[in-house]
Amino acid sequence: MTLDASSPAFPSPRRRASARKRRRMMIFAVIGLVLAAAVALILNAFRDTLVFFRTPTEIAERGEAPGARLRLGGLVKQGSVVHEGTVTHFVVTDRKNDLAVAYTGMLPDLFREGQGVVAEGSVGQDGVFKADSVLAKHDENYMPKDVADRLKAQGEWRPEGAGAAPK
C-alpha cells in the first residue's frame, strides 16, 4: 500500500489550517463562557449589597438569614429607647413594620427618638437586629435621602412640624 499526499494520514495544509482555526475558536468560546459566568456571578453577588439599606418591611418580606450583614434604615420609634449599661435597645420603624435593635457602644450625639437612623449589622437568631454601627441625622433638616424617599413613597414620612403629607 502506498501513501500519497491526498490520503488521510497526510492532511493537506488547508485541512491543518482549518483544524487550527477550529481549535482556536473553541478555546476563545470556552474563555468567553468562563468570563461570562464570572461576570454573572459577580453581578449576582453585588445585586443584594448595592442597596444602601433595607427598611424593616423589606427585611420582614425577604426573611433575611440570621447572620447576614445588612444595613437597616428607618425612624427610631418614639418611646422605644432603653439603655442597659453599654447596650442600647431601640426599635426602628418605617411605620409599617418595626424591628428591634440592640447596639453596644456610644450612640451618635444626634441620635434620638423620631429621627432617621441607619444601623449596620445583622439579624440574630432571636429576630433582634444586632447593630455594630449606628448613623444618625446630622442636622435639623436632614434625613438620609434613601430613607426619606422610601417613607415618602409609602406616604408615611412627614417632616418635623409639618402636618401635611409629603410632596
Rank of each mutant, 00 (worst) to 15 (best):
N97P: 04
F90Q: 10
V128T: 15
V92T: 11
L43R: 12
V134L: 00
S12F: 09
V123Y: 02
T57C: 04
L3I: 11
L110V: 00
L50Y: 00
V92Y: 05
M106L: 14
H89A: 15
R54N: 05
V123C: 02
A40F: 07
V118L: 03
D98N: 15
R22M: 12
K152A: 14
V82M: 12
R22A: 14
R158K: 13
V117R: 02
A40Q: 04
A162L: 13
V134H: 00
A131M: 06
K152D: 13
A5G: 01
S80Y: 07
L43V: 07
V134S: 02
G63A: 02
L50K: 03
A100I: 08
Q154E: 13
I31R: 06
L107I: 08
T55H: 05
F46L: 12
T86D: 15
M143W: 06
R23E: 03
R24T: 10
F52P: 15
K167Q: 13
T104W: 05
A45L: 04
L3G: 01
K137C: 11
A45T: 01
G155R: 12
L110D: 10
F46D: 01
R112H: 10
V87I: 14
Y103Q: 11
P144R: 11
K77N: 05
A119H: 01
I42N: 08
F129G: 00
R112W: 01
H138P: 00
E160L: 13
E113Y: 10
A162S: 14
S122P: 06
V87W: 05
A17K: 14
L151Q: 05
F90V: 11
D48C: 03
G155D: 08
A131V: 00
K130D: 12
V81C: 10
G121Y: 01
L33K: 04
R150D: 08
G85A: 10
L3A: 07
A36L: 15
G116W: 04
A153R: 10
F53G: 00
K130F: 04
D109T: 12
E140A: 14
L50E: 03
V147N: 09
G163E: 14
M143Y: 09
R158V: 00
D109G: 13
A164Q: 13
G73Y: 04
R95D: 03
N141M: 09
V101T: 07
G114V: 03
R71M: 03
L3V: 10
K130C: 05
G105V: 09
G73F: 01
